[in-house]
Each structure stands twice: as C-alpha cells, then as structure tokens.
C-alpha cells in the first residue's frame, strides 16, 4: 500500500471523528433544551411546582401569540431594544473617550485615579432615582442608566490597555515626527481594539441590566415595565415571557458584537 493512500484514509477518518463529535455536541445541546422545557411543562401541569408562580412554556407561548397579534409586545420590545442599544453605544464610546483623555494627560489620570476607583465600586443602579428626578421619568433617564452602568468599567479597562501598548511602536512613530494625536490614531487605538471588543461583550450584559432597572423605576413602557407590571398584578406568564425575550435579544446583540469583532480585527 502506498503511504499517500494511507494518509488520505487517516485524514478521512480524522474528519469523520470531528463530524461525529460535532453531531454529539449538537444532540446534547438539543436534549438539554427539550428536557428543560419538557420538565417545566410537565411539572407545571402536574402541579409539582406552583403553576401560578412558575407558569409553563405553553402558557408563555400562548401569551406570546396574543401579545404579537395585538401589537403590544412589539411596541414594548422596540422601546427596550432601542434604549439598550443606545445605552450600550453611549457607555462604550464615552468610556473610550474618557480613557483617551486620561491617556492624553498622565497628570489628569493621576488626579482622577481614586475617584475612578470609587465610582467603579459604587453600584450604579443606586443612582437610578436621582437620574429619574433630574432627567424626568422618560426615555432619556433610562438610556442614561444603560450608559452609566458600563462607562466607568469601560474607562478603566480601555485605559489600562492603552497604557500597555508596546512603547517601541511609539518610538517608531516618534522618529517619523508623529504628534500625540497621530500616535493615538496609528498605534494606541488600533492596538487596543481587541480589548475594546471584549469590553463590548461585557457591556452588552451590563446595558441590559441598566435599562431593565431603569424601566422598573420609570414603569411606563418596555420589557422591564412588563416584568414589574406582571409582578404587581401577579401575572407570572408575563414575567416569564419578558425574561425569554430578553434572553433571545441579549444573545442576538452578543452575536452582533462577535460579527463586529471579525470585521474589525482582520489580521488575526
């Protein structure tokens, strides 16, 4: 037997084993999904768990269909998604700009250091009532919540990554007579893209927290309002439905960030 044939066979075997593993992973994932919802439905019907509190997939599904046909779900959903996306973008952009300012002025960064630590340690949602009084119980204060929750941690993480850029890259630019803003544009910012992307991933989750808490407090519109309303009238089908939708849309946003990552970091 020729060795080349042998290698071909081995490669085919290797590919087959990869495929087998992939199928097994998919099967297990599907199994967990079915078992979870199946167990939930069954235990709710047989009243092993209180159906009033824990609802059931079929009830949630039916409510989903009603809410879609009367159009209320879409209006709540679009408000929340809009607020979250805007809060997320604002938080990340402002955080990065603040990090750039700190990089620009090392003296300012030394002065502000303890305040950043305090602001980072403080639970930002506690600022909610103040925001609502200051900005009014409107969209603005909810977006502000979504942004404020991620802005300080973004600043700290991105500023750290700015400072860790290899100084030899700056030396190269300096010999070409680069100004500080050129150094930022040509070396500091692009070298930090991987860090910025990973803070984006964290910020997706944080913005949802900020916006949902904001909607709890404002109680006017959105998925957070649906949760708090469902809780007050003891309609837990509504609460569960909102949770499910939040899970789906948070995942979609996360996937979009990963798509951006692949676009932005070409050379990896």
């Amino acid at each position: 037997m020729k060795p080349s044939v042998n290698i071909k066979n081995l490669h085919a075997q290797y590919k087959a084993s990869l495929l087998r593993e992939k199928r097994w992973v998919r099967f297990c994932q599907l199994l967990i999904f079915i078992v979870f919802f199946g167990a939930w439905e069954t235990s709710s019907r047989l009243e092993w768990i209180d159906p009033l509190i824990f609802s059931s997939p079929s009830k949630v599904w039916n409510l989903f269909l009603t809410k879609i046909t009367d159009g209320t779900l879409f209006s709540h959903l679009s408000v929340t998604v809009f607020e979250t996306v805007l809060g997320f973008i604002l938080g990340t952009v402002l955080g990065t700009m603040l990090a750039a300012t700190l990089w620009w002025s090392p003296l300012l960064s030394k002065i502000l250091d303890p305040y950043l630590v305090i602001l980072n340690a403080m639970p930002k949602v506690a600022l909610g009532p103040i925001l609502i009084v200051a900005l009014g119980p409107t969209l603005t204060s909810i977006i502000a919540m979504g942004a404020i929750i991620s802005v300080i941690i973004t600043t700290i993480v991105v500023y750290t990554s700015f400072r860790e850029v290899d100084p030899n890259y700056l030396k190269v630019l300096q010999t070409f007579g680069a100004s500080r803003s050129q150094m930022f544009k040509e070396a500091i910012l692009p070298a930090s893209f991987p860090t910025i992307i990973s803070t984006l991933k964290v910020n997706v989750g944080l913005s949802w927290v900020g916006v949902i808490v904001g909607e709890f407090l404002v109680s006017e519109k959105g998925l957070g309002y649906m949760i708090i309303y469902g809780f007050q009238v003891f309609n837990f089908n509504l609460v569960m439905l909102s949770l499910m939708i939040i899970a789906v849309f948070a995942t979609i946003m996360y996937q979009l960030v990963e798509l951006l990552e692949r676009k932005l970091i070409k050379n990896e």
Binding site: D166, N168, A191
Partner: peptide, 10 residues
Amino acid sequence: MLQQDYLFPW
C-alpha cells in the same frame, strides 16, 4: 531601526 521590526500588525 530597533531590535525587532515593530511593523504594525494591523
């Protein structure tokens, strides 16, 4: 010119 090339990887 430095010890390493320091070409910008991006």
